Simulated assay, not measured.
Amino acid sequence: MTRVQTSADPVLDPAVAARLTRDAAGLVAAVVQQHDTGEVLMLGWMDDEAVRRTLSEGRVTFWSRSRREYWRKGDTSGHVQYVRSVALDCDGDALLVRVDQVGAACHTGDRTCFEAGDLGAVVGGPE
């Protein structure tokens, strides 16, 4: 699927679009967080259209880099992400999408995509 918009299609607010710093593929990272607990659920990728849909529809939409198509979280799994807020980081290259997650966030069935195991980092800080 090609990401093409016609003049009749809604577009991302130009003021929002101007604040985004996209990678070479036209994407920004979207960190998804459970709104009430702060739990980091997953990372996805969005282009302007996915951002527009996420901001205007109340559900999170991503651009699948592997399938090259849009996907709205929960449409096939039922594990829906309802948008509570969307914030842009200081560099404009990452979004923080706070959601109410219904069911698992990860395609593996885990609550988050970060349950695969700790990498064993040395814990720092003052002693």
Rank of each mutant, 00 (worst) to 15 (best):
E69T: 13
D100R: 13
V40W: 06
S7D: 14
Q33S: 06
V40H: 03
D36H: 11
G74E: 04
A24H: 13
D47V: 01
R65Q: 13
C90L: 05
V28G: 09
F62I: 06
A29W: 11
V51A: 00
L27R: 15
R19T: 14
D13W: 12
S85D: 13
C106F: 11
E69D: 15
S56M: 09
V40R: 03
P10Y: 08
C90Y: 12
V86F: 05
L43Y: 08
V51W: 02
G125P: 07
S77Q: 07
L96G: 08
D75T: 13
T2K: 13
Y70T: 05
G117R: 06
D110E: 14
L96M: 12
D36Q: 11
R59D: 03
D36T: 15
R22I: 04
D9R: 01
E69M: 08
D47S: 01
L95H: 02
T54V: 06
P10G: 06
A94P: 02
R53S: 03
D91I: 05
A29D: 15
R52W: 04
W45V: 07
H35R: 04
G26H: 04
V102F: 05
W71A: 10
E115P: 02
G117Y: 09
L27C: 05
E127K: 11
R68P: 00
L55I: 13
T76I: 02
A17W: 06
D91P: 03
T54H: 00
G44L: 07
A116T: 11
A105R: 01
V11F: 10
Y70C: 02
Y70K: 05
E115I: 04
G103R: 08
G38K: 04
L20S: 00
E69G: 08
V80K: 04
R59L: 08
Q33C: 03
Q34D: 15
A121S: 12
R98K: 13
W63A: 09
A94Y: 10
T6R: 10
T6M: 10
R22S: 02
R53I: 02
Q34S: 12
L12H: 03
A15Q: 11
T76Q: 10
E69F: 00
D89G: 08
A8T: 15
L12V: 05
V99M: 08
V40P: 03
A116L: 12
A15M: 09
V28F: 09
